[in-house]
Amino acid sequence: MKILLVEDDAYKSTAIKNWIKTEYVNADVELQVSYKDGCLSALKGGFDIMILDMSLPARTQIIGSDRDTIVNGGELIIREMLDEQVPFKVVILTQYETFNGETIEAIDERLREMCGDCFYGCISYNSQDDSWKNLLQTIIDDVKGSDC
């Protein structure tokens, strides 16, 4: 199973990767840490599911350089894929509750409308609460099942 994880927070990406490796031993997780690299990987396609963070640095940050954040970077990757008509399955996994004043629930609804069945929802990530794992597991199992 091939998973694309686009996440710039090293703590979060480590936690997600470790959890995936424990639960899905054969999973192959590709990690990208910026909008640009995430987008390039996503456009190449071939992933069973993409797990995207929402807020992402535009490009892989060069140590010491200024950070150029795209607040809705995850959403933009999805829109780029839709525009390029690349098939995908995606879930957003974020620590934020709101983006530019829009709640995560509203974003969830909007992206469902935009992407239809390709979008598996927005999940709130919390390092102290494991409920994201259950939600993500349900989605990955669903994706796995649909491939079988």
Partner: peptide
Amino acid sequence: INAFKDAITTCRTEFQS
């Protein structure tokens, strides 16, 4: 609470940077 959590998340990312 949501605003506070978002502030912590943003600050954490900026602090890491």
